[in-house]
Design a protein around this nucleic acid. Sequence first.
DNA 1: TTGAAAGCGCTAACAT
DNA 2: ATGTTAGCGCTTTCAA
Lengths: 347, 347
Amino acid sequence: MADVAERAGVSTSTVSRTLRGLSTVSPEVRARVEKAARELNFAVSRQAASLVTGRTGTIAVLVPTLDSWFMGSALSSLATLLRAAGLQLSVYEIPDLAERTAFFQHLPARRNADALLVFSFDLTDEETARLDDLGMPVIYVSRHVDGRPSVYADDVAGALHGTRHLLNLGHRRIAFVQTTGARGFSFSSEERLVGYQQALIEAGVPLDDDLVVATRAGSKRAAAEVLGTLLSLREPPTAVFAEQDEVAVALVWNLRRTRIAVPEHISVLGFDDQPPADWFDLSTVAQSPSEMGRQAGELALKLIDDPEGEQGRHVVLPTQLIPRATTAPVARGQGEGERDRPGAGDA
Amino acid sequence: MADVAERAGVSTSTVSRTLRGLSTVSPEVRARVEKAARELNFAVSRQAASLVTGRTGTIAVLVPTLDSWFMGSALSSLATLLRAAGLQLSVYEIPDLAERTAFFQHLPARRNADALLVFSFDLTDEETARLDDLGMPVIYVSRHVDGRPSVYADDVAGALHGTRHLLNLGHRRIAFVQTTGARGFSFSSEERLVGYQQALIEAGVPLDDDLVVATRAGSKRAAAEVLGTLLSLREPPTAVFAEQDEVAVALVWNLRRTRIAVPEHISVLGFDDQPPADWFDLSTVAQSPSEMGRQAGELALKLIDDPEGEQGRHVVLPTQLIPRATTAPVARGQGEGERDRPGAGDA
DNA sequence: TTGAAAGCGCTAACAT
DNA sequence: ATGTTAGCGCTTTCAA
């Protein structure tokens, strides 16, 4: 910056003022400085600037992985927002418990970012408390945390609507397939189970623990095992609600290989509406991670400007049932007990 | 840091040395300092440190998007590597031309990172030159740049092998579907076309421009249009090689909807081996973005330590044909020339 | 509107 | 093995 000042024949103060766009610089001087800066290929060092301003110009995100549809969409829209605000995006990826422990021990984000966005993690109270005195706004994304700013999808309502759809199609034996090992997403998982149960209760359908099973995401083999469990029940389900599209797709794949027609014999419903859901014609409950990323970013910007302003503010995003080709009215003669004139379908 | 020094009863230099793990600190003092730092919840400001060391402790990546299988996998493995090396990951997302222009005008990464990884972009010579005097190592990923360190997949060989597979199955009319609008990936696209052509030439099959078509990624409708073009040729293809799995899947979807059996009537081959390829039983040519991210990261670390060391070093990663259920021998009576008893279907 | 000077939090060279 | 001191490159008083 000293070089630029010399070349423009002004002081470094003036260069600084010019480059930050302050109005207190005369047009002619401004022109000279900008020219000099351009010629010298000068770019301000954020590091040095932040040392005195106390602002780093960086937003940090804590994510379980970068390699998922959810995180990709969310971070992409977040990045767009930050770019417009002139902020950098810094990523902390915490794929496992060891890394997580290390992160919370040292809290490396401290003083190296202006705000922290925590995605999806199921934190302990102690961890949340650690983040509380990190000295910067912390926003929780894709999960609700009491008393802290959070942005998340309405998982309960999503699962409720999805299950209602299946009930409306005449299904009474509806299985719910949870996903294990989806790092950091256990919160949504619990919420979705609640929505599923609520729908059954409001319809007067008894809950049956045998119909709630768990599997690993993205494994055809694990999906086969889950199906084995469900299909060997005394009263097997006529519909399966998977809390993730990937699992739903793996279920469909296995069913079709076994020549169990989907949706004629079994309906399958997913959750997320990832792109492959469309390719597979999978009925699903859509959520919008990109909207989540955007909202979380906006909240972060507000909190940076006014740290006390929106504490405890919650943004709940809607979900949307997308019926496609893997859900259908329960087949005639199918279903439970003496039941329902099958094929009743939607009223 | 002064607080920590006071609490531990030492100088800031000693605190600094301790926290950086230098060996010239006595065990007892080290213990005192670490205790004080923990109690005060102290974390070193990278900003201040970098001001004097000249190192930012950050690797910057320039990416066209974060929302894709390729970038997710690549950045995820890169992040793992960087974490182990104690480095931060800073993301510059440049989704369109306007953002790109802005980036190259200001080069905001200058002095704010220790190395830059440029993913996939087809840069002009001028842009490459700008990056050359950025004052930090620049590594090009997923594309080859003469004289600069690059890490990329062997797209030519991948497409060559894929096309050979189709030729070996007896196909002679083989279409190649390019993807447009896949931001920043035009380099690979060209390479794959070259591989396709090489295979045809070595097999003595004449090139036919009518068989090379382009479509948008991820659009069923666009895929339908491409199929319309190909299926209305005088001699339609018996196999289609799409340079991206998403396009291949969209083609299969459209074909099956039209009751054109895949692979019995038309074979379809993809490129990438994204997870949905497995769900769809799509034959494809696999590449490994996670390996690409890892290798690029390692190269970056080397170049930071020894900027002159590996200039111009190229890492070329292999591809692998994965035959699944969408490619099959050409049907009896099908193929070129006098051809096909229509509706031949399975042999 | 501009400049001089102090200092942000740290590291590195030097001294002890 | 530890302390002292001088900056790193910038922003921000304060004074002119």
